[in-house]
Nucleic acid binder design. Structure first.
Length: 673
DNA sequence: GCCGAGCCTTTTTTT
DNA sequence: AAGGCTCGGC
């Protein structure tokens, strides 16, 4: 317990902590002690006698929610921190909607569709509107739909435009399945509050003080939610940094922060500009980059730490050499300088960049942790079992039902599945209803009929267990897995013995997390667990926090926001990767620059930016040009090195162990202005 | 209905 | 490079 005290705060931070009434906008640059300020503010409010349960803190990501929860519990007296309501926008809306689903035309046992389920549903809808040979990109449709939902755009006339027809088909299918996608959580949450005054007043009363973290990432729906949530005199405090707005592709409105006063009048505006994280060279370089963006709120980040190291910009021959260079350097720094593995992070633009790094790290036996790549719950074996659970909660969830209908194979093939689907479409009910229908059962061969009935019996049996009060999900799922023969089926599927072991541990971990849930939460049952799965995306319990796991951190720049590491590598700084080639077409180059800025400002002591001449993409070698952003960096603290050339000239004459020290000194000297 | 071989595209980022 | 999808043989 580190009780909160004003003495640990600088003057603007103190000011922010003390301003607890009326609208407050805190502009907190990278590394300026934002989280500390926010948590201190909560602690202060509780000390001032505001009931903790009346404080709502909303964040954008689970990561910051988790972090804040821990820090608040640590700082607020008497364990009152636990009572502060804390979560992401989506989780908050989800909780609200579980309570009031009927008010927005849903049943309480609705399911949440993740990306992949959305895609499946969309493909299904598209198949209905398009001929087979016609190609219609589901992922493009997905982002169009998401945008429409976020901006409240009308889909247009379904009779005239294919897009509109798909949009409408998708929405009505979702409703029919009693399913929501991520955007619906916000959309319906807003709708609930805007259209139901009684609910709104209760919620407003419950959450009298609202704080929003990562405010630069909020979109217009989230803003509407806040407007509905916070009545005059607007006890709302938002914290953000427009320079770190990197979720525009998801509808984040930078204007929410740049025009905050339009939404909540006369806010107190507080700037946090003293950076406690990085050295002057790092900040200077970051500032020189970000000033190339137009229309931002100018900030002057400064640091008391002059630092000892320049920022290196390395050019290597190809991506293998780049990965090996990083691995080798980390290895030497660890064994020669005694740096901990956890001090290092490699930040990249796209997830697939991590593969080659992993290979080279494994070769050198360097422990690493990959953060957030594909989540645990996206693993096939886990998804399968989760789909069973989803169907137990809501049998009309066609997507999950179709996934498990013949998983493991039980003699219900695509023919039967298609037939059931057609029937369900014609009659406007779910596939489950079609399967139960005696008329339908008469239409299929006897063997299949038996299989279908067996499947339905299985579901019936476990639905009873699942909905019984106080029954435990862990044991239930375990026996479900056993009864279906799922593991045996997996064993047959495996191409290598390794496959099976991996799958098996996936199942085991899922069971563990179910057991943990059983211990932790005795009230919310199956839907509570599934909500956690969809809203938390990854990890559970033990593996909880990436910052606690051991090893070098491999992470995307997006996921790295809010984190810091003593020594940071930014590989692949090439045209087409950062800025990503698609950002040109979409006019989002500014956002890519902010992303680079976020990457740079993660570094505390040392920063190495690298790019390559040749990179293997989709199996073939391609020339790579340096990112245009590199030219924007002020050169005062830069040290540019052609790594490949240095290697060739020196490696034959020097021993590689001492070589690096020599190279480092050489680079420093040659770069001093 | 089941399974494997071969073809084809691909995700940028996350709730 | 790898996973998803289609097609053809069983």
């Amino acid at each position: 317990m580190k009780p909160f005290s004003f003495g640990l705060l600088n003057p603007p931070q103190r000011e922010a902590v003390k301003s607890i009434h009326g609208p407050v906008l805190i502009l907190a640059g990278a590394g300026t002690g934002k989280t500390r300020t926010v948590t201190a503010r909560i602690a202060h409010m509780v000390n001032e006698g505001i009931p903790a349960e009346n404080i709502l803190a909303v964040t954008f990501t689970n990561k910051s929610a988790t972090e804040m929860r821990e820090r608040v519990q640590d700082m607020v007296r008497d364990g009152l921190g636990k009572k502060v309501v804390l979560g992401t926008f989506h989780a908050f809306c989800c909780r609200l909607l579980r309570e009031h689903a009927e008010s927005v035309g849903y049943k309480k046992n609705f399911v949440i569709y993740s990306q992949s389920e959305q895609t499946s549903l969309l493909k299904r809808v598209i198949a209905r509107f398009c001929a087979k040979d016609e190609s219609y990109d589901p992922s493009a449709a997905q982002s169009r739909i998401s945008r429409a939902k976020n901006y409240g755009e009308s889909p247009g006339d379904p009779k005239r435009s294919l897009d509109a027809a798909v949009y409408e088909g998708y929405c009505s299918e979702l409703r029919a399945l009693n399913a929501m996608d991520f955007d619906d959580l916000l959309l319906l949450g807003v709708q609930l509050l805007e259209e139901h005054a009684d609910v709104r007043e209760r919620v407003q009363h419950r959450h009298r003080y609202v704080m929003v973290d990562e405010f630069q990432d909020t979109n217009s729906l989230q803003m509407r939610l806040l407007k509905a949530l916070v009545p005059p005199p607007f006890h709302i405090c938002v914290v953000g940094d427009d320079d770190q707005s990197i979720y525009g592709w998801r509808g984040a409105e930078i204007t929410n922060i740049t025009q905050f006063e339009d939404f909540f009048p006369n806010p107190k505006v507080i700037k946090l500009e003293e950076n406690y994280r990085s050295t002057t060279p790092i900040l200077h370089t970051a500032n020189s980059l970000i000033k190339n963006n137009a229309g931002r709120r100018p900030k002057t980040l400064w640091s008391r730490n002059p630092g000892n190291d320049l920022i290196r910009v390395l050019l290597t021959e190809d991506d293998k050499e780049e990965a090996d260079m990083i691995a080798k350097e980390i290895e030497t720094a660890k064994f020669r300088d005694g740096e901990a593995w956890e001090s290092f992070a490699v930040l990249f633009r796209t997830n697939d960049q991590s593969r080659i790094l992993e290979q080279h790290f494994r070769q050198r036996k360097i422990p690493y942790r990959v953060v957030g790549a594909r989540s645990f719950f996206d693993r096939r074996e886990v998804k399968d079992i989760i789909s069973y659970l989803a169907v137990l909660l809501n049998p009309h969830d066609d997507i999950s039902l179709l996934r498990i209908l013949n998983t493991p194979t039980r003699g219900i093939g695509t023919g039967t599945a298609d037939l059931a689907r057609e029937r369900s479409l014609e009659r406007g009910h779910s596939v489950f209803v079609a399967l139960c229908d005696p008329d339908f059962q008469r239409m299929i061969p006897a063997g299949t009929r038996t299989a279908v009935r067996g499947f339905l019996d299985l579901l019936g049996k476990y639905t009873t267990v699942a909905s019984a009060r106080g029954s435990l999900l862990g044991p239930m799922t375990e026996s479900l897995v056993g009864e279906t023969g799922y593991l045996e089926w997996l064993r047959k599927q495996a191409k290598t013995p390794d496959d099976f072991t991996n799958w098996e541990t996936g199942i085991r971990e899922l069971l563990n997390s179910l057991n943990a849930y059983d211990q932790r939460n005795r009230t919310d049952g199956l839907s509570g667990f599934l909500d956690e799965v969809s809203l938390n995306g990854d990890r559970e319990d033990d593996e909880d926090d990436i910052t606690k796991k051991k090893g070098v951190c491999l992470i995307t720049m997006h996921a790295a926001k809010g984190l810091e590491f003593p020594i940071v590598y930014l590989p692949g700084m090439e045209q087409g990767i950062l800025p990503h080639r698609r950002s040109y077409e979409e006019g989002r180059v500014d956002e890519e620059r902010r992303l680079f800025y976020v990457g740079i400002t993660r570094a505390m002591k040392k920063l190495t930016i690298s790019h390559v001449r040749w990179r293997v993409k989709w199996g073939q070698k391609q020339a790579s040009l340096p990112s245009p952003f590199l030219k924007e960096l002020d050169r005062t603290y830069l040290d540019q090195v052609d790594y490949a050339r240095h290697m060739k000239e020196t490696v034959s004459t020097e021993e590689s162990a001492s070589f690096f020290a020599g190279l480092r000194n050489m680079m420093k000297e040659s770069a001093r202005p």
